[in-house]
Write a protein that binds this DNA or RNA. Structure first.
Lengths: 239, 239
DNA sequence: GCCGATTTGTCCGTATGTATC
DNA sequence: CGATACATACGGACAAATCGG
């Protein structure tokens, strides 16, 4: 991103994270920041809007912009944004392996359509993968990819990283995603595929992913052993 | 909110939700919408930005703004935004009751400080409440409120709705919140206070809430029986 | 493959409203 | 009440991506 507001956003964010602007303190005023960065009012406000959305600061009319970021916000195993399995593993210095259990073409029937949101009859790749961290089978990933949008997916691609293929080779940008977190009882198949130990419940993250054209290209369900699971998010009331 | 962009946002949102603008279709162009609403380019863009952030639409440069909302997105028991227990119960037509188990003043010691993010020594209200839906004890809420920011909290207030007191009587606006979702084993106390049945795991939502001045005034931990729990969120990559 | 029309994205300058102190 | 700070809105300009001829 070479946009001006993006640069200002990153600069301010770094100063917040580094403690340059401490927790609960006020940022310099918009007017001062405009002078400092030599940009327009609107551009600076766009950067501040990003900082607000990401949970770093909170603006108070007539008063200032308060820092609400704390160092402990750095999560060990965050899933709030859109992060791939590989990215997560690398960030936590864990050795990640993937085993492909299922890789097949299907057509969305009534049941699949209702679950995934794909129209009935859509041609889909159905993929099931077990994710191992340091040798332990902790996550079961079920995916449905639109064949129209992700035509030449191979078993090798999904074994490495489906997103790497989609974003890299295919050049498709991944954009918005919607996710739902629930807690579900371990099924027979979970027990068969995962090192469930005595965990009889799993954290389940499911949802849809949209590409740069706003078209839904993936439904995903990710079943996690509870002891390795955390989900982060920040919300803003109103807006 | 009497702002122009807010009205446009709500109007467009309603048309999306009602299916007036169907899933995966393109919105009228910005130029057309500007004409229709008789507002400026920037104002309309602000409304579109809100729709994007809330997961209703996705803009594609040079092409249009695509609708990515589906009716099934209406969640039964959503917790993605900042919603109070009462609001949630009412939306689902459930009879909600609250039992106050603990209501006391404490000072944040090392342990509490590390857990909540309040500075050590901060004076806090410590509140524990059991939430019943249709007579079943399903949720255990633990809260720490800053006494400095919420001075005259009473046991009656928390029995009804702490937020109603804070927002209503105190006139304090609730703004940003950060939440973390984990899955934890049921403790002895959980079993004592909740109708846990044979659920030996709970969905746990914890986090901090900031008021309109950007000051942290609450740490909350909410322990839910899995069968009554869903957490929603939408994320945008980059930005 | 290029060009022009369309559409969204970024940026600027300015003016006015509203809340805080 | 005035000064300060954020919030909203307008209008204009150009950049970048998409699409069709």
């Amino acid at each position: 991103m070479k946009a001006i507001y993006g640069g200002i956003y990153r600069d301010l964010r770094d100063k917040v994270v580094s403690g340059d602007f401490p927790f609960q303190s006020l940022l310099p005023s918009e007017a001062n920041l405009v002078r400092e960065y030599g940009c327009s009012h609107n551009t600076l406000r766009k950067a501040l809007g990003l900082l607000t959305d990401q949970g770093y600061v909170h603006p108070i009319q007539g008063k200032g912009v308060r820092v609400i970021y704390q160092p402990q916000d750095k999560a060990l195993f965050s899933l709030g944004g859109i992060e791939t399995f590989k990215e997560t593993a690398e960030r936590n210095h864990l050795k990640a392996t993937t085993v492909v259990e299922t890789f097949e073409r299907i057509h969305a029937d009534e049941r699949v359509s209702a679950k995934t949101g794909f129209a009935k009859g859509t041609r889909l790749w159905h993929v099931e993968r077990v994710r191992l961290l340091d040798g332990k089978a902790l996550i079961l990933d079920r995916n449905y990819f639109s064949i129209d949008l992700v035509p030449d997916l191979t078993e090798e691609d999904v074994a490495r990283s489906a997103y790497e293929y989609i974003e890299g080779t295919l050049g498709m940008r991944i954009a918005t995603s919607k996710r739902t977190v629930t807690v579900e009882r371990t099924t027979k198949e979970d027990e068969r595929l995962l090192d469930a130990d005595d965990f009889d419940f799993l954290a389940v993250v499911s949802g849809q992913t949209f590409n740069g054209d706003g078209l839904m290209f993936e439904y995903t369900q990710s079943r996690h052993r509870p002891d390795y699971f955390t989900f982060h998010t920040t919300a803003i009331r109103g807006r």
